[in-house]
Write a protein that binds this DNA or RNA. Sequence first.
DNA 1: CGTTCCCTTGACACCGATCAACTCTGGTGG
DNA 2: CCACCAGAGTTGATCGGTGTCAAGGGAACG
Lengths: 254, 254
Amino acid sequence: MSDDCAYFLAKLGAVSNLSEPATDTLRDLCVRRKLIDAKRHIIREGERPAHVHIILDGWAARYKVQKDGSRQIVAFLLPGDICDLHATILTRMDHSILALTRVQVAFVPAELMDEVPVSRPELLKALWRATLIDEAVLRAWIANNGRRRALPRLAHLICELHARLKLVGLVDDGHFRLPATQEVLADAMGLTAVHVNRALQELRGRGLVALDLRELQILNLPALKELCGFDDSYLHLGKMADHGVGQAAPELLN
Amino acid sequence: MSDDCAYFLAKLGAVSNLSEPATDTLRDLCVRRKLIDAKRHIIREGERPAHVHIILDGWAARYKVQKDGSRQIVAFLLPGDICDLHATILTRMDHSILALTRVQVAFVPAELMDEVPVSRPELLKALWRATLIDEAVLRAWIANNGRRRALPRLAHLICELHARLKLVGLVDDGHFRLPATQEVLADAMGLTAVHVNRALQELRGRGLVALDLRELQILNLPALKELCGFDDSYLHLGKMADHGVGQAAPELLN
DNA sequence: CGTTCCCTTGACACCGATCAACTCTGGTGG
DNA sequence: CCACCAGAGTTGATCGGTGTCAAGGGAACG
């Protein structure tokens, strides 16, 4: 039980260097947990959350709906991702978060979260860095959806998910779970399910990926990246550079 | 000279309550300044910034280019906006920032910025809040570009700019400067300049806006909002709710 | 006074949407 | 064990919004 937050620690640890006590603090934040079934909401637009939610395991989608009922997914939340630091600062959710699989979430009381920067200043940077990376992903989505055709758009999304999942160890030799229906993928890319289907078939036909029963196998990663011009630098996978206060451990690896 | 950062103070102040000494701190941050001509870069992709840039006056655009040369603007930076808190934390810019007009920017050394949360914890929340609002705007753009046709998409962008400029006092009776060519608007919305032109004419034809020589007049705001289902709550224009540590001044106005 | 940038307009092509039917799979209950 | 059903994937035909290409006009600027 004490290591169910492994993905969360892996994610933050991959992105910043965490000291031993910092890791313990993060673990302590995750004690309150809940299992949420697929197709249920973790939080909905309009609510005023009292907790910060952290995805310990499973997939979720952040989305907005418009008056006419159409849905746009604006982010996929993977194991280790923080759903809404918003909660501590913004009062009203401007979107909803839906579980795509059964999800284990940690509920961190906002007050507890508020104390983190005070009690553990080094974690402030780690959290801030995670937030800024989320922002970079949002920018990449705008560029991807705005300036790429369906085929490279899909390829880029797959490359991104691959890179992010790999970071937390959820990729096994180019293979990972992709618990999203074609409709979900469509809502993430601003397309229709029918067209995602056709794009997917094209990728299959070219021998780039195999996708069946929510299991995706990348067959030719270089060609897939080439197709969409994928460059993972926006994910800032390298560790944190240190040119300021805080942050003690200087051992950079990888 | 000492009040050139008025828009910056207005922006942060509109979004959080700032104490007198906090305001002074912000003012101190902005002492190093520079004028940048239109069409020049404030910072480019790949650079490792040593400063955080704040737009004191003028417009800029944050954008990404792809291999094929196409450009996607992912944000408009208006007077008072912070360009890149990234600088303190992420080392490499994953996008560029271009001045759309002559811009006055403040250069805040990263070390100085790093000290802010330590020396003025109340400002930490204000900065964090500004960052989270930027994130909310990015999400709104994904939804706007992904799920709206050209006409409502353009209307929504105009409504957003209207709301954000109003916040810092740059709207005069529905009228404001919009120093973006149709090509720039197109690159922000994932369209072509030709199609933006036609959408614009449609808006004009319906008597909703007048746009000429980079000056925009909204003629019928309710109808414009109705057209795109604009709901400004994602901008979180209300002041900060306080349910944690820090933050002393409790007088809420508005 | 020419040049450049931006806006405008028309003709046409094409990508992706839409609509509709059918298949396949897994699950559920009789 | 079978019948049924719902959700997801697949396919084809057609429509339409937006892109593309090309030409021309107008205003600012040196």
